[in-house]
Design a protein around this nucleic acid. Sequence first.
DNA 1: CTGTTAGCGCCTTCAG
DNA 2: CTGAAGGCGCTAACAG
Lengths: 348, 348
Amino acid sequence: MKTLSQYTIKRIMSETKRVTIQDIAKRADVSISTVSRVLNNSAAVGEAHRQAVEEAVAALDYRPNIFAKGLAGGVSMTIGILTQNISSPLYDAILYHVLQGIRDSGYSAIIADGQWHPDESRQSLQSLLERQVDGVIIIGGNNEEAHLIELAGAMPMVFVGRHIEGYEHLCICIDEYTGGYMATQHLLDRGHRQIAHIMGIATHPDAIARRHGYECALRDASIEPQAAWVVEGQFTQSSGVLAMEMLLTQGQTFSAVFAANDQMAYGARLALFRRHIRVPDDISIIGYDDQPHSGFTIPPLTTMRQPTDVIGRTATAAILDLLKGNPVATKPLTVDLIVRESVGRIYR
Amino acid sequence: MKTLSQYTIKRIMSETKRVTIQDIAKRADVSISTVSRVLNNSAAVGEAHRQAVEEAVAALDYRPNIFAKGLAGGVSMTIGILTQNISSPLYDAILYHVLQGIRDSGYSAIIADGQWHPDESRQSLQSLLERQVDGVIIIGGNNEEAHLIELAGAMPMVFVGRHIEGYEHLCICIDEYTGGYMATQHLLDRGHRQIAHIMGIATHPDAIARRHGYECALRDASIEPQAAWVVEGQFTQSSGVLAMEMLLTQGQTFSAVFAANDQMAYGARLALFRRHIRVPDDISIIGYDDQPHSGFTIPPLTTMRQPTDVIGRTATAAILDLLKGNPVATKPLTVDLIVRESVGRIYR
DNA sequence: CTGTTAGCGCCTTCAG
DNA sequence: CTGAAGGCGCTAACAG
């Protein structure tokens, strides 16, 4: 059975001829080169001609054929987005706002998932490049830096939630250290002195920074951080349960816990529930990320807000700028965190 | 300031010539047409030649230039995904599995967000078509059916979570009626007789179906559904809070609530918490969708599982099939729901 | 069965 | 400043 139908179908349905650069050339009574020139602003053009062309473009509702542009060695009007693990609440939120920003920019977004896996990431990135994306937004991920840097030199690229030495101007990242500090400070302010910490994946820069903030806050309050107060999680809910279990079975005494993200905080909270330990009456919890659910936890979870909207918008604005040719216009970006005061009471 | 850099950049970095159909033609010592033929399996080719070509393709690690294919009037190796409101947990989960299925298929996914808005949806869909996507997966949404049907006749297209009259073979949907019935039945089995229902958006087919299931379950248990037991929500958490408030202030008596989705269930649960009404001791709640958080709610939420993985896989398998030319191979699909027995106790 | 040829729509030298 | 012409990589007739 022959299956050449794909192409025939295409041909049939595109019978409705799209207006091409030729059409507007004719209407504006100039050559196609001139049209191309005004379209891309790639060379000076007589004012009269320019206007004629622009008029024609508007009148005929011309849309450039992406494939032709791409073939001609040019631009693909496509922005590649390398994300990690779709359906992770935080990254989805950022992704959402990034897409939001790309909409109406004339660009399309093609997204690839790196799964937090170096090999996968590399492959996904590769496939994006093969698609001749004009720029790339890399959200999180753990690709080799060397590879990224090489690419970053050759094409518009911004990094979200990741610090790349020497490319800070392309990194949109959060001051995780301060975030951890503030969270801990918040508990200290409430009178807590024995504060445990469920940290994220031990090798994860964010996890390290948050923990660092936690420890510094303690020290600044003249409290010596206890190694036993810190237990490692995986940023997942279930790891939060385990972490809390561990803290409890180890017989540690503490009146509050700072979890390095909300998902682990949820897990921790469940572990306490199972043991009939009240929150926040017996133990207080503060999370991190301000997941949508946080306000609906019982009791509502105090947490650190990740300004995903700002992050997303900043990221798109950045590549769009780079794409537009405003090079290095992006400054080192740092977004502040906000303590969201939950409805729940805090111990003491 | 001239900004023609985009193209120059492209040109520079693609200096690393990609192998073209010509290269492999040369290596296999055949004409480019023959190569094209074996590549697309678009016509019979001598076995010897075919092998030679395949060998060359493998040896040179040839990857077709998508833009050239597209320009030549052919295929774009791209699947368009029209989704609704990214960062909605349920749709994200489906999206995740869809992307998962597309990965390694040779196709790329370009996604557009319809925002649950007819105009937006139409525009997004339009932009996908302009990109010459080879097929489209429409997840949810509320585009005009007429438009969709017209398109569906012209190109591979499948619908997820939506019923389109006459195109059932392209719809991957859930039996929401049965879902609602089972949820209610579950409560009845636990001895509840007065069961309230927080329904979704009143015009939403799923919401209607779930409510219908709810009512039928009651009737089958010889309980006449009370209009006052049903209050409309918006599928959002906060609307769940309001809905529960409404039920309580109206002075309705009920021992259990069936919320049309988990997000509203969370909201309802919070409303009860604020009023110091215990769950499930005083009132039981059952949700719908089995959001990741459900198991971490306090107490863990009993809910109806949406098999997002199956849905996603089925959807991709379907368009991939359509794309491959196996037309109408997709049968009317209906996926069952599973009651996930939560950890928490249920009233009585 | 196979090679040759004419575009697809657009960008970019290259002469005016 | 502007038009003409070549080519990007690939497919689809068209003749063998």
